[in-house]
């Protein structure tokens, strides 16, 4: 298939960017979206041009490295997948595809379609863990956990940290990401011990980094490649309110 690509090109963070048109020919409909970009890049290199920079790694939908805002949607038109799992059979011959980077203040563009998502790491560092050290822990089966809770925790923990929720949200809010981690620990007994501090610290860090607010549009859930539910946002809200209400003044 032949396609017209309109790709955001930006040499570096400080420079101005713009959409540039590229034509690609003879793309197999069985190729993945990123393989299509590989074909373009290989041609650009041969022609002595600067290839398009984009983040990617595992190419099986789990590392969360790939991003891309494709035709107005994070990870492209299909539901429940990442860009690397998107295949060209999803597009029509002759179609024009607009490819942009994630857009959010805390996700500055590094080059072309690459953005800096270290803000997510900072949020996790603010409290996305159980503060235990290696060793000295009880036997694994000493902490029985209802299957339902373990499943809920797993639903939340499935987050790959790709940032599609932020990219999709009209407010560039990171609530789905943050709530997925808060929620995972909130339902597990291991996480309950620090639950109050965790939710307050993580939310404070999220706000400090300049993410927008949640206005419950649910675009995040619709675009999440792991289909993480907004019920986790509600759980975080609940956790946050109750933590704020009961926590002592220090």
């Amino acid at each position: 298939m032949d396609l017209t690509l309109k790709i955001w090109r930006q040499a570096s963070a400080g420079e101005k960017g713009k959409l540039v048109d590229y034509q690609v020919q003879n793309i197999s409909s069985e190729a993945s979206f990123l393989e299509m970009l590989d074909v373009l890049n290989e041609r650009l290199v041969r022609e002595g041009e600067d290839p398009v920079a984009f983040d990617h790694d595992c190419r099986e939908g789990i590392c969360g490295a790939c991003s891309l805002y494709i035709n107005g949607r994070p990870h492209g038109p299909d539901k429940g997948i990442t860009t690397c799992q998107l295949h060209m059979r999803r597009f029509k011959d002759g179609e024009t595809i607009v490819i942009e980077p994630w857009r959010a203040k805390p996700f500055p563009v590094i080059k072309d379609l690459m953005v800096d998502r270290s803000a997510f790491d900072e949020i996790i560092q603010a409290g996305g863990y159980v503060s235990i050290n290696t060793g000295g822990v009880p036997d694994a089966n000493a902490i029985p956990i209802p299957k339902r809770d373990a499943d809920t925790a797993m639903d939340a923990a499935a987050c790959i940290g790709c940032g599609a929720c932020v990219a999709a949200c009209k407010n560039a809010s990171a609530m789905l990401f943050v709530s997925a981690k808060v929620s995972q620990f909130a339902v597990l007994p291991q996480g309950k011990i620090e639950a109050r501090e965790r939710v307050q610290n993580m939310v404070a860090k999220m706000d400090e980094l300049g993410f927008g607010n949640c206005t419950n549009t649910y675009a995040c859930e619709a675009e999440c490649p792991k289909e993480i539910s907004v019920s986790h946002i509600a759980r975080m809200n609940r956790e946050y309110l109750s933590a704020k209400l009961v926590s002592q003044i220090e």
Binding site: E100, F211, A222
Partner: peptide
């Protein structure tokens, strides 16, 4: 929170 807008608007809400 989104100083640079998307060129192609999203419709995923």
């Amino acid at each position: 929170a989104r100083p640079v807008r998307y060129q192609k608007k999203g419709y995923s809400e």
